[in-house]
Amino acid sequence: MKTTVDIPDGLLREARQVARAEGTTLRSLVEEGLRSVLARRAQREGYRLPDATVGGHGLQPQAQDASREDTRSPAYGDRL
């Protein structure tokens, strides 16, 4: 697909020089750069969990050294 893109003169000159030096076309260089940027952005954009913290002061003293079962039981009313 053809499209028109405005590129600053200096950047275009540099890109043409790199393409010539590497024995490739400006089109290939632009395509490679665009793919690279899109891939990098796709990697860094991940799902971020919403902040679900609540106020409080952490565990109550009696739960500090409790086992998993001891802390689970009150929450589920000793039902399994």
Rank of each mutant, 00 (worst) to 15 (best):
M1L: 10
E14W: 15
R79F: 13
H57K: 15
G23A: 07
S28E: 14
R40T: 11
R41V: 09
S73C: 11
M1F: 05
S67T: 13
R13M: 12
G55C: 08
R40L: 10
R72C: 09
E22H: 08
G23P: 00
A21V: 04
R40S: 11
G55P: 02
L34H: 05
S28W: 12
V54H: 03
L11K: 04
V30L: 05
Q64P: 01
P74G: 03
I7F: 06
L38Y: 04
L34I: 15
L29R: 04
G58T: 04
P61G: 00
Y76Q: 09
E22C: 05
T25F: 00
Y47P: 05
D78F: 11
V37C: 06
G55F: 03
Q17L: 08
Q60C: 07
P74I: 00
V37S: 07
I7G: 02
Q64F: 12
V30S: 00
A39G: 06
L38I: 10
Q62Y: 15
R79T: 14
A75P: 01
L29T: 08
E14F: 15
P61S: 02
Q60G: 05
T4Y: 05
D78A: 07
R16L: 07
L59G: 00
E14S: 13
Q60E: 12
A75D: 08
L11C: 08
I7V: 14
A66K: 01
A21R: 08
E45H: 10
A15L: 06
S28R: 14
L26K: 00
R41D: 09
L38S: 03
M1Q: 10
D65P: 01
V18P: 00
P50F: 03
D51L: 00
R20W: 04
Y76I: 14
S36Y: 03
A39Q: 11
R68M: 14
G46I: 12
R79M: 13
L11V: 13
A15I: 05
E32Y: 10
R16S: 07
S67Q: 02
T25Y: 00
R35V: 11
G55I: 09
L11S: 12
S73N: 13
R13A: 15
R35I: 09
G58N: 03
I7D: 03
L11G: 03
V5R: 01
L80G: 09
E31W: 08
A15N: 01
Y47E: 09
G46V: 13
L11Q: 12
E31H: 12
G58V: 05
G77A: 04
D78T: 08
Q64W: 14
A52R: 15
G58R: 04
E45Y: 07
V30Y: 01
R68L: 15
R27L: 04
R44I: 03
Q43N: 09
D6Q: 15
A63I: 01
P50Y: 02
A42K: 07
A63V: 04
H57W: 13
A52F: 13
L34V: 15
V54T: 12
R20V: 13
H57F: 13
T24C: 04
Q62S: 12
I7H: 04
P50V: 05
G23V: 03
G58W: 01
V37A: 12
L26D: 00
V18S: 04
R27D: 09
Q17Y: 07
P61D: 05
R41C: 07
T3H: 11
L49M: 11
S67A: 05
E69L: 12
A15G: 01
A39W: 07
L49F: 14
R13S: 15
D9K: 09
S67D: 08
L80I: 14
V18H: 05
